[in-house]
Design a protein around this nucleic acid. Structure first.
Length: 217
DNA sequence: AGCCGGATCATCT
DNA sequence: GATGATCCGGCTG
């Protein structure tokens, strides 16, 4: 009967049709929305990382297309979800041109709507700022799983949408090396909103101790 | 506040 | 068969 009073202002696909390291800082302050009505959860993005396909040894697209990374090679403005460490999901937004495999990992943010639902999905969170502080936590808070891999975030009827966010966008942005990777450690493609409490702590890659080693007697 | 180890499985070698 | 774009709890200080 009536239009919503605050229609979502979606980011246009052209926003994502640029190299990931250019899109990444522009995503800070934008709002990712999952679900709708009673099930809506919104997240103001505070931390991201860029990955640039076959040029970037740290990117999932580095060695070319596979079943897992196929969405990254598709058109921009889609959600690429992967499963890692046997227990976490991570959400990325596909950037660049079709045929490339650029993406921005959404690492952290502040929940700005639907906090009660986010908390039921993240019962371990001890405070507001921990609800989506880190990529695995963020995916949990938004209810993002591999079932949503390939979702078009530029379409109003999608289960996950990328919106412009409210002005003013963050005025101070920090940059540094990406977190938890073993290759291309020095590329400064992690971007975050300076001094925001929801930004995750930096962790260097730590090679894991051998699962088990049975040496000869 | 910071470091360490364990959990746990899809993906690729 | 090893590794990983991580998280959490327990310990140290």
């Amino acid at each position: 009967m009536s239009e919503p009073q605050n229609p979502e202002r979606l980011l246009p696909r052209a926003f994502f049709a640029r190299p990931a390291h250019e899109v990444a800082p522009d995503l800070l302050g934008r709002v990712l929305v999952s679900g709708g009505g009673e099930d809506l959860v919104a997240l103001r993005i505070t931390e991201v990382e860029a990955y640039e396909g076959e040029q970037d040894p740290a990117s999932h697209g580095w060695r070319g297309p596979t079943a897992r990374n196929a969405v990254m090679f598709g058109p921009p403005g889609h959600l690429y979800v992967y499963w890692i460490y046997g227990m976490h999901h991570a959400a990325n937004l596909v950037c660049g041109s079709e045929g490339e495999s650029h993406g921005v990992l959404i690492r952290a943010g502040e929940i700005t709507a639907g906090e009660a639902l986010a908390l039921t999905r993240r019962p371990a969170a001890r405070s507001h700022r921990e609800l989506a502080r880190g990529p695995g936590r963020l995916a949990d808070a938004l209810g993002i799983t591999r079932a949503l891999n390939g979702t078009d975030v530029c379409a109003p009827d999608s289960p996950v949408r990328a919106t412009t966010g409210a002005a003013p966008l963050p005025s101070v942005i920090s940059t540094g090396p990406r977190t938890g990777i073993s290759r291309a450690k020095d590329v400064p493609w992690r971007f975050w909103t300076t001094d925001d409490p929801t930004v995750s702590p930096y962790r260097a890659h730590k090679p894991r101790t051998r699962t088990r080693r049975l040496g000869p007697a």
